Computed example of a mutant assay.
Amino acid sequence: MRAEVDRPVRDTAVEVNLEAPTSADGRWCLDAYFRELAERFETGFDPARSNPARDEEITPPAGFFVVARLDGRPVGCGALKRKDRTTAEIKRMWTDRSARGRGVARKVLETLEAMAREFGITTLHLETNRTLAEAQALYRKSGYREVEAFNDEPYAHHWFEKKL
């Protein structure tokens, strides 16, 4: 119990790096992400029914995929998928349960936003499911505002946008 109290809210040891979604750690993160969504969503989760973020769409130059690590261990991921010249979507944001509350998701999101700016992106979109309250809170705190649906993602209940 004492370790939980003393654990910092944000962890400066979080490293976020560009990586291929097909790497071993990238696949591990994506598989864990899909498993967690299947557990948490009321209807389960089938990646084949969801709007895609195919490997080639989140690999440079089309987009980016990042893996977050704590002490060298993968604990999170996120992706940027370009929609057009100035708009991109944040996809596949996930943090392992063991690393939550340590600033991993925020650092992944900030890294993706910085990459988007360098890529010439001026508008970011993302969507999320109503059961992911912690994700909604992060997006709102990070300056995303809720907007009308911009796609037909079957698992989404909230759509967000941020101007960079």
Rank of each mutant, 00 (worst) to 15 (best):
M1A: 14
F119K: 13
A114W: 08
E39A: 12
S142F: 07
N151D: 05
A48H: 12
T131L: 13
G63W: 06
N129V: 01
F119M: 15
E15C: 06
A88H: 03
A149I: 02
V14I: 11
N129G: 03
P74A: 00
F34P: 09
A13R: 15
A133Y: 11
M1Y: 11
Y144A: 03
H125L: 13
T123F: 02
F160D: 08
R106D: 13
E57K: 04
V14C: 08
D84R: 03
L18R: 10
R97D: 15
Y144I: 02
P21R: 03
V104M: 04
R27V: 14
L37E: 09
E42G: 10
P8D: 01
R82E: 12
D55K: 06
E89Y: 02
A62P: 08
V14R: 03
R49I: 08
A105S: 02
A79N: 01
R27A: 12
R82N: 11
S142Q: 12
H125N: 10
E15G: 08
E15A: 10
L124R: 08
A62F: 09
Y155C: 05
L132F: 09
A20M: 12
V9I: 15
T86S: 10
D25V: 00
K163P: 10
D6Y: 14
R100E: 12
E4S: 14
V16H: 07
A99W: 05
R117V: 06
Y155L: 07
G26F: 02
P61Y: 00
R7D: 11
I121G: 05
A149N: 02
D31L: 11
L37I: 06
P21F: 02
E56Q: 13
F45V: 02
G63E: 08
F45C: 01
V108R: 01
Q136P: 09
T95A: 08
D11R: 07
R130G: 13
A133M: 10
F45E: 00
D11S: 05
T87G: 03
V16K: 05
N151P: 00
L37V: 04
R85K: 12
